[in-house]
Every structure is written in C-alpha cells, then in structure tokens.
Amino acid sequence: MKLNKQLLAGIIFLVGLLFVTFVGPYLPFIDEDIEKKGMMITENGEIEIPPFPPSSEYWLGSDHYGRDILSRLVVGTKEVLAVVLSVVLIRYCLAIPLGLGAFYYRRVRRVLQFLNHTLSFVPMIFIVLFFITMPYLYFSPHRTTWLIIILAVVEVGRVGDVLYKQTEEISYKPFMDTAITSGNTPFQMLRRYYFPQLFPHMAVNISLDISRVMFVIGQLGLIQVFISHKIEAIASVTTPAYKVINTSHTWPVLFQRATSDVFGSVWVPFAGAGAITIFVVGFYLLGNGIRHYFEKRQSYI
C-alpha cells in the first residue's frame, strides 16, 4: 500500500502537540511563570531593552515586556487548545442534530436552509466585531464564553448542511436498499448503516474545522479582537480610567502590535503566526490524511 504521507505527518503533529500541551510547561528550558524583564546587560556591558531578539537565552526572542516568547507559546498551548476544541465541540453538538434532523424531518431542513441562507450574507469577522463591541458583552464576566459560542454558532449552518448532504449521499447507496428490505428499524438503520459510514466523514470534517477555527482566531487577533480580556484600572488624575488588558498567553496575543512590530521586532508576530500556522497546517494534513485513508477511487485520465 502506498504510504499516506499526509496522515503520517498529521499524526506526528498531533503527538507533538499533545506533548507540548501536557509536558511542555515542565521542560527545563521553559519558564513556566513567564517572568517579565525590564532590561538586560550584554557581555559588552551595554544595556538592552526588550523586545530582545532571538538568542541562546531567548530562543524565539522576547516580547515587549521581556517575556520569553517560546515559554509563552508553550504555556499558552493548553488555553489555545481548550478554546479551539470548545468552539468545535459546541458547533458539532448543534450541527449533528440539525444535520441528521434535516435528513429525517422537512421542518428541520427548512430551519437549516434558512440558517444557511441567512449566514451567507454576513462575513464571519463582521458578525464577531459586531457583537463584541456591545457593552453588554464587553463588560460581561462571561465574555470569553460568549465569544466561543458566537464563533461556534456562526458556522453551524455550514457544518449541518455538509452533514445533511453526506447522509443523503449515503442513503442512495445500493446497500441501503438491502438494509431496508432486511427489516431494520429506522434507529437500527442509523446505528448499523449510517453511523459507520458517516464516521470517517465526521473525523475529516472535525479535523478540518479545528484548523479553520484556529485560523479565524488568528485573524481576529490581527484586528485586535482577543478571546479573553480583563478590564483594569490605569493611573489617572481626575476621571477614573480603565484599560483592556490581555491576561492570556494564547498565541494571537502576540499580534497585538503586529503593524509596528513588522518594522523592528519581527520575531514577536512571527512567533505567533508561526505557531498558528503549524497548528492550522497540522490539522489540515490530519484531516486530509484521514480522507485519503478512507477514499477509494479509480481514474481513467
């Protein structure tokens, strides 16, 4: 059998990711507490201020507060993974009943169609921007949860539709006629015939969706929308003033000054973008690898 390189690469990536998530923070060269450092004295006795460029001490350089970027990336992995997986989980929890429901009931199909038509008029980033500027959400202590829900719901229609079409396609297969004639109840049909067929499709879709969600979160980071934030008082003389600060170590936070970092400290946004890229590509390869694994086709040309 021909080696499925994509699947192999995807699995290696997945193992690596799990290793970084759970073992990474305890590795010797990772600073788990992520200390800030105001300045650094070089061997020549010169004083350097952060961001420090990549060196033997800071493998990927440091950010604007002198924090080691590699440590930030590694420590942030768990949070990134949690956010991305919860978005995908919520999305599928809603999409699976919707997709399968659409296959069985005409009313659910209408709902799905309506959802799809509606969302085909609003670009993703548009709708997210829209909601996060609402004071209700902005000040809400559950802002992170809300954002995750919004990100999940925006694409429910698409995912449900894909699932519906795949189920319908399976129902046209010849073995379905056999299954019906041999007297299976609808529930048995679902369990014995649809689920085993749908499972590979789902694995592919979920993997690709994880990749997409990470991509979108990265995009949002570039336009200064972050998943979690905290409102903190800043020094002021007369009226009280507050600043929105990012408490997390998730990767897109490194984009905070991307537009100006491009000129001087390119390693800061690049580290974030690099980590996101590896994540996105990894899950993309995994998804495609699974697809190739289950796919059998012939070709004349």
């Binding site: 996060i132 500027t133 902005y138 336009i223 200064q224 929308v225 800043i234 507050y242 600043k243 929105v244």
Partner: peptide, 10 residues
C-alpha cells in the same frame, strides 16, 4: 465601531 482598548468612566 470604535473597538476600544481603553476608556474613561463617563
């Protein structure tokens, strides 16, 4: 949309 990074009370 005025995506705010900081604000004063009032």
């Amino acid at each position: 949309l005025h995506v705010r990074g900081s604000f004063t009370v009032g």
